[in-house]
Design a binder for these strands. Structure first.
Lengths: 222, 222
DNA sequence: AACTATAAAAGTGCATGCACTTTTTAAAAG
DNA sequence: CTTTTAAAAAGTGCATGCACTTTTATAGTT
């Protein structure tokens, strides 16, 4: 049971932070879904801790935008409308486009080579059963590396936040056939970065995200 | 004393939210400055409430990025580096540029007329002593109206957040002579919106924010 | 079977207690 | 006078209690 995850390790990290992390994983993985109720007291009992750290974790998740809570009511996992999803992608197009622009003149060749290696690996195992899981991991890495290479900490944080905020949809809205296109789009971003061409990098990244946007919004009904 | 602000009113609003609001005002107004320590227990005593709602308010402000806290340490008001300030404006340029683009085809003529009236009023009272305070209020209104008119709730929220995150600098970094330029830049945004020209609106808004950026970053030393 | 009414159960918001950590203070040593 | 150090004061993280609100379960009415 996940309880052990919390109690042992006489860590220096706060209980509330561990619980925040645990719940975030549950939301992003789809274990907890939109509309689900997350009662502080019940969770505290389930995890074998007091209400205080659970209370704090829930408040963080509310601030993060994953939960909603009215006064005196139990928090519920947010339901995203298709307009929300669309809007989130619109913002990602701006932010990650800019990050790519800035990264083009800053990203070190080592990271770049590493990303390309990752992409090639995915091309190779295209028919493998573990493809999806490898893809998810690589995709995260790809976007994070570029965000980092922008050189703007704020920009990176914003990008991470917006990517998280729609990631829970991955589970429901899977459309595997499209991922090979995504991979090709990644290559085009990497080419632009290799060329040290900021505008090209921005355009390639914006194309990539706009493609995902179309897929997600299509698959998504209110 | 501000205590009364908290205790009376048998409101439906949570104590923690009132305290959050109160502290936010203190930070934005400069009453509390970068580096200041904000102890939960002390504040609770000062406000005449228990630690719980203060605890929650502080945690929110930490999430908002106004405070920083290490484990078992008292939270401190964040100090922004000039790189931070620069980065925040870079993001605002993207987000508010986009909002202006979208607003160009959506903003209703009534709001537009109202904003123009506000701008004209500020031209008239240019030598008045209350100018600065009127400017601050109108400037907020201007940016908020455009963010709203974008039609994207997420975009609006992000814009509000980024504007807040550097507003505390207003107090220190005042440079009154420059504000009349800002006013002229506003007019150019309003003209573009009147023309229903998205690209022109984006450009005008981005120019405006880039001018502010230059002023703030110049005035700002680490 | 489908509503109401209502009592029990469970939940939230805020207050408080306690163990342990950090900060402040004030005395002792150089 | 400055540095060191040790004890007091204050602070944080988590547990718990209580008043009041919401939710759920139950019984009665149509």
């Amino acid at each position: 049971m996940s309880t052990t995850l919390l109690i042992d390790e006489n860590d220096q990290v706060r209980l509330s932070d561990k619980i925040h992390q645990l719940l975030l994983e549950r939301i992003l993985s789809g274990v907890m879904q939109a509309g689900d109720i997350v009662a502080e007291k019940k969770l505290a009992l389930e995890l074998g801790v007091s209400r205080s750290p659970v209370h704090d974790a829930l408040r963080d998740l509310i601030k993060d935008g994953f939960l909603q809570q009215a006064k005196n009511r139990r928090p519920v996992v947010c339901r995203l409308s298709s307009a929300d999803v669309f809007d989130i992608f619109e913002i990602r197009i701006l932010l990650e486009g800019e990050a790519s622009y800035k990264a083009a003149t800053r990203m070190d060749r080592i990271t770049l080579a590493e990303l390309r290696k990752g992409a090639n690996f995915l091309f190779e195992i295209e028919k493998d059963q573990t493809w999806l899981e490898h893809w998810a991991q690589y995709d995260d890495h790809f976007h994070l590396c570029i965000a980092k290479a922008s050189g703007s900490k704020r920009l990176m944080q914003d990008i991470i936040r917006h990517r998280l905020s729609h990631r829970a949809l991955n589970i429901q809205a899977e459309s595997p056939y499209s991922f090979s296109n995504s991979l090709q789009e990644h290559i085009e971003v990497l080419d632009a970065l290799d060329n040290r061409d900021p505008s090209q990098a921005r355009t390639a990244m914006q194309n990539h995200i706009r493609e995902s946007q179309a897929l997600f919004v299509n698959k998504f009904s209110d």
